[in-house]
Write a protein that binds this DNA or RNA. Structure first.
Lengths: 338, 338
DNA sequence: CACTTAATTGTTAGCGCTAACAAGACCTGA
DNA sequence: TCAGGTCTTGTTAGCGCTAACAATTAAGTG
C-alpha cells in the first residue's frame, strides 16, 4: 500500500520493472493465469503493493471488449417498486463482479427506451436490464434491434429477450380469494393505469378469482398508482351502498382509499375490507394496518442479473422466463363480513 | 442509419475510408474541431450515417483519461430520500453529458465508503458524489485520501470536500415555531438515530426554537426512521397527559406516531398536533393528512452535480458549501391549542 | 544421457481513439 | 511576383492493457 512514486499513477510497466519481470507476467498474475511460478507471483504482488498499483480497467476493456459494466434502464426510481428492484439488481451485479450504470426515465416510450439503450451501448456496457413495467416499454423492447444481451423485468411476452417478473395474476387472485373467503359477496377493484402490465395482470387475477367463484365482477375504477387517485376512487366507493370489499392495485392508492373512507365515516374493516398490493414499508402502519400482497422486488432484481450474467458468460443463449411468486400478507384492513 | 457492413462494428478507419479522408479528420468532425471544411464535414457525417458508426467511448476514455462517468455512492436507495436524491443526481448528470455509476451501500462505515470509492476510481470515474447522511460516513469521507474530485451530500463539515445539503436546523425550527405559534406550551420531539447528521440538525433546530421562545425542551424520544419506531414513540407519548404537540423527525415515523395515537384514542389534531419531515408522497393522505417540512431532494441532487462538474471542468478548485432551504407544508395534522 | 514435452517467461502487435506535429493548399499584402 | 501567415488535412505515436506467438528453462522418458 505504498505511496505513489511520482505524481503519475503507476502502470503495469512500473510494476514489472520493480519486480524485475515483464509487464506480461504482471498481467498474468493479475488475471490468475495458471503458469506463473509462485515465487514470481509473490514478487509481483509485493511490487504491486509497494507501488500502490491499480489496474486501468479502461485499457483492459478496450482490448478485451468487455467492460464488466451492466446497464440498467428503469422507470422513475423514486417509486418504491422500481427503487427496490434496481437496488436488488445493483447488489447482485456487484457481487457478480459487475459495475452498474443506471438510466432512470420519466417516460418509457419507445424513443426513450431506444435512446437509453443506445446511450448505454455507447458507454460499452456488456448487457442491460430494462425494467419495463409499461406495455409501451415492453413493446419497444420487443421491436428494438438489440445490440447487447438484454433482460426485461416485468416485460410481458417481450419478443426474444428473457423476462423476469412477479406473477401479478396470482397476486390478484390471492387478494380476491382472500376477500371472498371472508364471506364477501363480490370484490371491487381499483386498478392501476391500463398501460401497465402489472395493472393488467392484477385485473386479470381479480377477474379470474371472481369468475371461478361464480360472482359478478363490478366495473373496476381506474387509478394511476398515486394516493390521490386512490382517494378519488375511495370517495366513489364510499358513496355506493353495496361495497363491502375492495382490492386496490397498490398500497399507495390503498392509502388514498382508506383516507377517503375515513373522511366519509366508512369504517375499515367493519364496513368495508381493503387489500392492497406491494407491501411498502409504510403499509403496516396505515389506519388500519393494510392487508396486502408482497412483491419480492429484491428477488426479481437478483434473478434478472443471474439470467443476464448467464447469457453473458456463455450460456446456451436461449430465452428464459422467470416468474417470482407473490406472497399474501394478512393485516387488519380485512375482516369477515357480518 | 445504414446497416453494418460485415459483422464487425465499424470503426473510425472504416468511416474515413468511406468518406475518403483520414481517420483523424473523422475524429475532428466528431469533436467539433473548428478547422474542418464544411463540405468535408458533410461527407464524413454522411459516411457515419451510412455505416451506422458509433464512436467507441472506451478507446476515447483511454486516451483522454476522462470517462465522462460520475460515481455515486449512496446509503440504501430504497428509502425515499436517498432515492430522490440519486434520481436528481442522475438526471442532472445525464443532461450535463455524464454517465452515472451507482453503488448503494447497506452500511456507510469507513471501510464501505472507501471500498466504494476505490471501486469507482478503478472503473475510471471522473468524480464522485457521496450521499453521506451519517456522521460515520461524513467522517470517513473527511479522512479518506480522495483520488478523485468528490462532493458530499448531507455531509456535515466534511474535510476538504464540497458539501450540498438541506438546512436541517432551519427545518426543525420551522416545524417547532409553527407548533408554538398555534399556542402549544411546548413541543415534544421524536428524533432520528443519533448517528445521522440530519437527525442532529433537526434536534438542534427544535431546541433552538424552544429556547428562543423561552420554553423548556422535553427529553426527545429516539427513533430509527422506521414507522415501527415512530409507533413505539407514539405509544409512549400517548400515555403522557401533557403532550399537545409533537415534531417527528421524518414522515415515516410520524405515520407510526399517528397509528399509535389512533389506537390509543388520541385524536389528531384535536388533542395533539403532529408535524413530520420530508414530505413523502404518501403523507398528504395520512389520517389526518400530515403537516410536514419538505426537503427538495431533487434540487440537492442537481446542485451536487453542478458543484462537481464545476470542479471537474476547471473551476477554481475551491471548496463549496451549498445549502438548500426546506419548505413548510401545512396540512391537517396540526391545530390551534384549545 | 539425448530427446521429447511441459512449464514459465519475454517479445511483439494492436484494441480504437486523440494529441502533436508536419505538410500542403490557400490566402494576404508589398 | 513571393515571403509570411492561416486554413485544412494527413502522418505518426502512444494511452495501458491483453492475445498470440517465440524463446527459454525445467521436467520426464526410454
Amino acid at each position: 500500500m505504498g505511496a505513489t512514486v511520482g505524481r503519475r499513477l503507476p502502470v503495469m510497466a512500473d510494476v514489472a520493472k520493480e519486480a524485475g519481470v515483464s509487464h506480461q507476467t504482471v498481467s498474468r498474475v493479475l488475471n490468475d493465469h495458471p503458469n506463473v511460478r509462485s515465487e514470481t507471483r509473490t514478487r509481483v504482488l509485493e511490487a504491486i503493493d509497494k507501488l500502490g498499483y491499480r489496474r486501468n480497467l479502461v485499457a483492459r476493456a478496450l482490448v478485451t471488449k468487455r467492460s464488466r459494466t451492466l446497464g440498467v434502464v428503469s422507470f422513475d426510481t423514486t417509486l418504491y417498486g422500481p427503487a427496490s428492484t434496481v437496488y436488488g439488481i445493483e447488489q447482485a451485479a456487484r457481487s457478480a463482479g459487475y459495475f452498474v450504470s443506471i438510466v432512470s426515465l420519466k417516460s418509457m416510450d419507445k424513443g426513450g427506451v431506444r435512446d437509453a439503450l443506445d446511450y448505454l451501448a455507447d458507454q460499452g456496457v456488456d448487457g442491460a436490464v430494462v425494467v419495463a413495467p409499461q406495455r409501451s416499454a415492453a413493446r419497444a423492447l420487443a421491436e428494438l434491434p438489440l445490440g447487447i444481451p438484454t433482460v426485461a423485468v416485468e416485460g410481458g411476452e417481450a419478443g426474444d429477450v428473457s423476462v423476469v417478473c412477479v406473477d401479478q395474476v396470482a397476486g390478484g387472485r390471492l387478494a380476491t380469494e382472500h376477500l371472498l373467503s371472508l364471506g364477501h359477496e363480490t370484490v371491487w377493484h381499483v386498478s392501476g393505469p391500463s398501460d401497465w402490465l402489472e395493472a393488467e395482470g392484477r385485473v386479470a387475477g381479480w377477474r379470474a378469482a371472481l369468475e371461478h367463484a361464480g360472482r359478478e365482477a363490478p366495473k373496476p375504477l381506474a387509478g394511476d398508482w398515486s394516493p390521490r387517485s386512490g382517494y378519488e376512487a375511495g370517495r366513489s366507493l364510499a358513496s355506493m351502498k353495496n361495497v363491502t370489499a375492495v382490492f386496490v392495485a397498490n398500497d399507495q392508492m390503498a392509502l388514498g382509499v382508506l383516507r377517503a373512507f375515513t373522511e366519509q365515516g366508512v369504517r375499515v374493516p367493519d364496513q368495508v375490507s381493503v387489500v392492497g398490493f406491494d407491501d411498502i414499508p409504510e403499509s403496516a402502519y396505515f389506519s388500519p394496518p393494510l392487508t396486502t400482497i408482497r412483491q419480492d422486488f429484491d428477488a426479481v432484481g437478483r434473478h434478472s442479473i443471474e439470467v443476464l450474467v448467464r447469457q453473458l458468460e456463455g450460456g446456451p443463449e436461449e430465452q428464459e422466463r422467470l416468474v417470482v411468486p407473490p406472497a399474501f400478507v394478512p393485516r387488519a384492513s380485512t375482516a369477515r363480513v357480518r
